[in-house]
Design a protein around this nucleic acid. Structure first.
Lengths: 215, 215
DNA sequence: AGAATAGTGTCTATCAGACAATATATG
DNA sequence: CATATATTGTCTGATAGACACTATTCT
């Protein structure tokens, strides 16, 4: 997948996250080919540019935009979050896929294939950022869900604890984010939580900001 | 490119923006094949999933995440902004590429191939959003640039006018966004503007929010 | 009652938006 | 001087974060 020559092709590495066991975890595979045979790696595919892209856009823009790496912003991200992502099921080649806590994966650094440690770090930051200004977090709570469920997603992905009352105020005031079902859920302990379903908004306005942001 | 069967492949449509003539413009091509022969369209390529992606990730996750379209968040965006993007140069097949104001392209709606009107609309919103929480805008000002240059990018992409003093306060207080060069630029009229270069930050903290956000 | 979680109310430092005022250039 | 743009300063309403308090369940 890497190092394919001749035709215009670029690899796509996927950071697939889930929330399991109160931890943020990422899906890795064990490489079955050289290079990095046996090393843990992000799952990936490759993109081969079609004729239209290559002829009409890429060549014309390359000189202008390649000077500064930020001049061309190509974002290929696969972000999946969920409270109960399935174990990689038994099946041909799925045997090499496994979930691992993000912290653990990042601690491996040099063991990860290619530059996947860096990619993972950036994907993590992107996922954390997406929670601020989009409604994805709600998409990964099974409906109906409580505000506490939603808060738990934020806390796990961001790695912080949030003030329940301030969190409630923000998410309930955000337009078209949550729709009340009028129902409640009885838990083992404590007052039953009001239940919600996702509203139509995809972007959070106003956004839900973390306190200190990174670069 | 669309409708390719058999192997797992999905199209990628590219929204490439530039700021020219004080307008936000987008790169389109004229289709040379059926379907939609002769219709304006976004340039595009196709992604074919590699074995690793297909075997290790896609199948395992599909049942879980395909129920809700937001369960799988695939973002493939190609965002290019610049004050002076070149005209599509003469060359084989580049003859069909052209810049057009975004407003014009959106007004065509039904004329655009496939669902490209929708895709363009979403890409526009994504680009506008990226200006809020990333530093891309600065990446598309030729260095060195003035705060007025930067403000002009925001105003053109967002389609609003911004208060110069409040804008200045925000961008100069954002950490690692701008670095002063100590130099000034003499313009035709008015006080010379202090010049800056891009700082190392990729994410804007705190973000620069528009007043009213969309869905 | 005690523990646990959900939800409401309030206070305050901070900040975004509005806008007045000043600075420095050209003609 | 008039005009245009850059830059600084100030005022005020809105709000994020901190935190006290109330509500409703289970044991």
């Amino acid at each position: 997948m890497h190092g394919r020559a001749q035709d215009v092709s670029v690899t796509v590495d996927l950071a697939i996250f889930t929330v399991r066991d109160d931890e943020l975890q990422v899906l890795l595979i064990t490489r079955g080919n050289e290079p990095y045979l046996g090393a843990p790696a992000l799952p990936g595919g490759y993109v081969r540019a079609g004729e239209t892209l290559d002829e009409a856009a890429r060549r014309e823009l390359s000189e202008e935009t390649d000077r500064d790496p930020r001049g061309r912003v190509i974002t290929v991200s696969y972000l999946a979050l969920g409270p109960n992502m399935p174990d990689p099921t038994a099946g041909t080649d799925a045997r090499t896929a496994f979930w691992v806590p993000v912290e653990t994966a990042l601690s491996w650094r040099a063991k990860l294939a290619f530059d996947h440690a860096e990619i993972l770090g950036e994907a993590l930051e992107q996922a954390r950022s997406k929670l601020e200004y989009t409604t994805v977090a709600a998409a990964f709570c099974a409906e109906p869900f409580s505000i506490g469920d939603l808060r738990h997603v934020y806390e796990t992905v961001w790695g912080v604890t949030l003030d329940p009352s301030n969190f409630r105020r923000k998410v309930t005031q955000a337009r078209l984010f949550l729709e009340s079902t009028g129902e409640r859920r009885r838990a083992e302990m404590g007052r039953p939580a009001a239940l919600y379903r996702r509203g139509p908004a995809r972007l959070l306005s106003p956004p839900l900001l973390r306190h200190g942001d990174a670069i």
